[in-house]
Design a protein around this nucleic acid. Structure first.
Length: 433
DNA sequence: TCTGGGGTCCTAGGACCC
DNA sequence: TCTGGGGTCCTAGGACCC
């Protein structure tokens, strides 16, 4: 069907730090990450102490069937099981150290940090410097990370990024060697053997159901369906899925991924249902300013503000729990302007139904070389406001969030003070304000 | 499981323009 | 003026990933 001679053949390595958070916590305690029985569990202040398992060690998974979405109350009451709080800042630091090791093996532009525990390396030009074949080089990287960091890694090798990622997800993670290699030539024995569509990167529950309606329930069937019918049915996604089934991925790491963020946003689940506009607005202001600080730190301005409101219950009318609204604005990164837009969106669109989830996101980012002045206020006032925002940002970076707190955050409903020190909504681990 | 949190990409339909 | 046609921009929603 496909003439693979036309496809790019590279040596791509997808590396995943096994049970990363749990492994870091094990190593910090002098335990072997494969033998320890440990879970990292978040006590988010907003979920009433319910707690959510962010990571479980392999043995914890095996012995108790704990998964990464287990809740605190589902955990067994067994003293052998270590339950530890997350330290997000530590994981970020360890991730940087691991990637520094990778940089010995591949040039910076040939490394793509995919997530906090996954990186993709293009070793086409460099693998031969370290081993007689790519597998030997991969083994050496695994050993070095294990020796220096105590962390085990799963490695998928492939002729392109897609094959490497699938080799890692589907085979390497579950094999004893923690390594697997997938080539174009072995697709019938690898991709086409995948029975569960949702195991495949890019196919979630909804897509699996849609494919099921077309009579497609595994990867072999997907590869042997009529691609034109698929595309007619599912658009670009259909074409992409078909390519995936044949292991086709024409991207090259150095070209495909530009690390520039397109948007920044924060969201949070509220500690209870909020049904009063003033207390909802307090939290929206807090989030609006939190995201504002993030874009100011990167010297960006936003031209597109989006809020998303999650209801306590699905709407009887629409059947949905979430709705979002956005608006374009003259680019800014000033708190007063951002909060004004966010609150304006809220007041224009809130249905009045109780809310449990709030989010604010800033897109259309541009650099803030020059401040856009508006027509309604004097230049002096606007410049002062900008300075004030930056001064507060610096104080908080140095001395902690609570150094400067808005009076409104002390009102009923505010969550910012409680959440100070969280990283990605979880405990940063080195913040004792 | 949208009652964890932070992102990206795609699509349908409407507004608006010529 | 849903009965001409093409194009762009914008918004809201859906789906997926880690």
């Amino acid at each position: 069907m496909f003439d693979y001679r036309q496809e790019p053949v590279r040596t791509i390595m997808m590396i995943d730090s096994k049970s990363f958070y749990a492994s870091v916590e094990s190593v910090e305690r002098g335990l072997n990450p494969l033998k320890s029985i440990l879970v990292v569990i978040s006590h988010a202040p907003n979920t009433g102490g319910g707690g959510l398992v962010l990571a479980a060690s392999p043995m914890a998974k095996k012995l108790y069937g704990i998964s990464n979405v287990s809740r605190y109350y589902e955990l067994p009451d067994d003293p052998r099981l270590l339950k530890v709080p997350p330290r997000m800042n530590l994981y970020i630091k360890k991730n940087l150290e691991i990637n520094a090791i990778y940089q010995k093996y591949a040039a910076r532009e040939d490394i793509h940090v995919y997530s906090i525990d996954e990186s993709m390396l293009d070793l086409t030009k460099s693998w031969h410097l370290y081993g007689r074949n790519p597998q030997e080089t991969a083994r050496q990287i695994q050993q070095e990370v294990r020796a220096k960091m105590g962390i085990y890694t799963s490695v998928g090798l492939g002729d392109n990024p897609l094959l490497a990622k699938l080799a890692m997800d589907i085979e390497a993670k579950h094999s004893n060697s923690l390594m697997a290699t997938w080539h174009y030539q072995t697709i019938p024995d690898t991709i086409w053997k995948i029975q569960n569509l949702t195991d495949v990167w890019g196919i979630g529950q909804r897509t699996a159901v849609r494919l099921g309606k077309l009579g497609i329930t595994n990867m072999y069937q997907l590869a042997h369906t009529d691609p034109y019918a698929l595309q007619a049915n599912m658009g670009v996604i259909g074409a992409q899925l078909f390519a995936t089934a044949w292991g086709i991925d024409r991207s090259i790491i150095a070209q495909k991924y530009q690390p520039v963020s397109k948007s920044y946003g924060n969201s949070q689940v509220l500690p209870r249902n909020y049904d009063q506009a003033p207390e909802i607005e307090v939290v929206l202001r807090e989030i609006a300013e939190q995201v504002g600080a993030r874009i100011r730190k990167r010297h960006l301005q936003t031209g597109l503000v989006t809020i998303s409101l999650g209801q306590a219950q699905k709407s009887a009318k629409t059947g949905r729990a979430f709705y979002s609204h956005q608006t374009r604005i003259t680019p800014t990164n000033l708190n007063d302007e951002l909060t004004q837009v966010v609150i304006g969106l809220f007041r224009a669109h809130w249905t009045g139904a109780p809310l449990r989830n709030l989010s604010v996101s800033y897109g259309e980012l541009t650099t803030d070389q020059n401040q856009q002045l508006n027509f309604f206020e004097t230049t002096q006032i606007q410049v002062q406001r900008r300075k004030r925002d930056f001064v507060i940002d610096r104080l908080r970076q140095q001395y902690g969030f609570k150094t400067v707190v808005k009076a409104s955050s002390l009102l009923r409903g505010g969550t910012a003070i409680q959440r100070a020190g969280l990283v990605g909504g979880h405990n940063g681990g080195n913040s004792y304000e």
